Amino acid sequence: MRQDEDAGRVTLATVADQAGVSVSTVSKVLNGREDVSSKTRVRVEQLLEQHGYRRGVRSAPDAPLIEIVLHEIESLWTMELIRGVESVAKANGASVVLTESGTRHSPGPEWIGGVLRRRPIGVVLLFSSLAPAHKKRLRARSIPFVIIDPAGDPEPDVPSVGSANWSGGLAATRHLIDQGHRRIAIITGPADMLCSVARLDGYRSAMGMAGLEVDPSQVAYGDFHVAGGFERARELLGRPDRPTAIFAGSDLQALGVLEAARVHGLRVPDDLSVVGYDDVAVAPWASPALTTVHQPLRQMAEAATQILLGIRAGEAVATRMELSTSLVVRKSTAPPPGTDRRQRNVSPATAG
């Protein structure tokens, strides 16, 4: 290859010649075919990346696709994110395809071959991470990607959109402290998810700022789902020194807490205050209406999709974006038993 050859005009024949394979083999690698040896695939991938190979626009499918990768479709927050991606995709003449990942937080090895065959114009990953090998293969095909609420701390070159989880956790806990609560428990999400850790850190910070010690027995790890919230809450409420308030790391877990309180014969908020997180559609309709941290899920998805399209268009875009959260005070929080209920704080507070 000539030293001054434009990398954007590299041909498959050039790559095939340097890799010592046929053009059809290079084509198979480009299209995610699995009938190529791993050694050959790695070599071709390296050359494609080295020379900055870019597909021509005509290689894209007739109906442009944006692929959403998620590990569960049923959750309420996932549906909000999907709606956000769909709204921007539709406005830009693209359709959306959903793919469930092979593991909880990262697409499995079978996914990458499929996505290369589908040739979407971009990939949006929810609550996920992306293996280095997958990043290379996507970039070699000029398929941009963005992660919404990444499972771990993404590398600087991985575009991501999240929300102010630490501030949200801080605001939720401060609200309970301002109500007069001192025995405040938290049911956070999985310990290996960045948003869970950030919300827990916000809780710890609020407790520390108020001069309150964090009792390790009042910290429980859940899974962001109703059943998990119910089980963790039953354990916390079964203790002799049960909490007077519980901050749940998701609204679904908070719904589980409400049911656990009922099973224990406790009234919310008279005997127990509960704060959720997300502000999903059912939160105002819970009994009682749920005080929660509003997370702008749809706006997060819309921003991520705009970033994706900007990358594809060659525009300079932000690689990290964090949207603000806010506390929405409803009926599930009040001062603890034995205090003057007339001092109840009902005005919303803002975080982020």
Rank of each mutant, 00 (worst) to 15 (best):
V161Y: 02
G162V: 08
G162R: 15
G162Y: 08
S163T: 03
A164P: 14
A164V: 08
A164Q: 15
S167T: 13
G168P: 15
G169A: 03
G169Q: 03
G169W: 04
L170R: 12
L170D: 12
L170V: 01
L170C: 09
A171V: 03
A172I: 06
A172N: 10
A172R: 09
A172C: 13
T173C: 06
T173H: 07
R174K: 15
R174W: 11
L176Y: 03
I177W: 10
D178G: 09
G180F: 04
G180M: 07
H181Q: 01
H181I: 00
R182S: 14
R183S: 10
I184G: 02
I184N: 04
A185P: 07
I186P: 06
I186D: 01
I187H: 01
I187N: 05
T188V: 10
P190C: 02
A191S: 10
L194V: 00
C195V: 00
S196Y: 05
S196P: 11
V197K: 05
V197E: 10
V197D: 08
A198S: 04
A198M: 04
L200M: 02
G202Y: 08
Y203H: 11
A206K: 09
A206L: 12
A206F: 05
G208A: 09
G208C: 07
M209A: 02
A210E: 14
E213C: 00
V214E: 13
D215G: 07
S217R: 04
S217C: 01
V219I: 10
A220R: 08
Y221S: 03
Y221A: 01
G222W: 08
G222P: 13
D223H: 07
F224S: 04
F224M: 05
H225R: 11
H225P: 11
V226M: 08
V226D: 09
V226N: 05
A227L: 05
F230H: 02
F230M: 03
R232D: 05
R234E: 12
E235H: 08
E235G: 05
L237Y: 12
G238W: 11
R239K: 09
P243T: 00
A245C: 02
F247E: 07
A248G: 05
S250H: 07
Q253H: 06
Q253N: 06
G256N: 11
G256D: 11
V257D: 07
L258Q: 12
E259I: 00
A260W: 13
A261I: 07
R262P: 11
R262V: 09
R267P: 12
V268Y: 14
P269W: 03
D270V: 08
D271V: 09
L272H: 14
L272D: 15
V274N: 13
V274A: 10
V274I: 10
G276C: 07
Y277A: 01
Y277E: 11
D279I: 10
D279L: 10
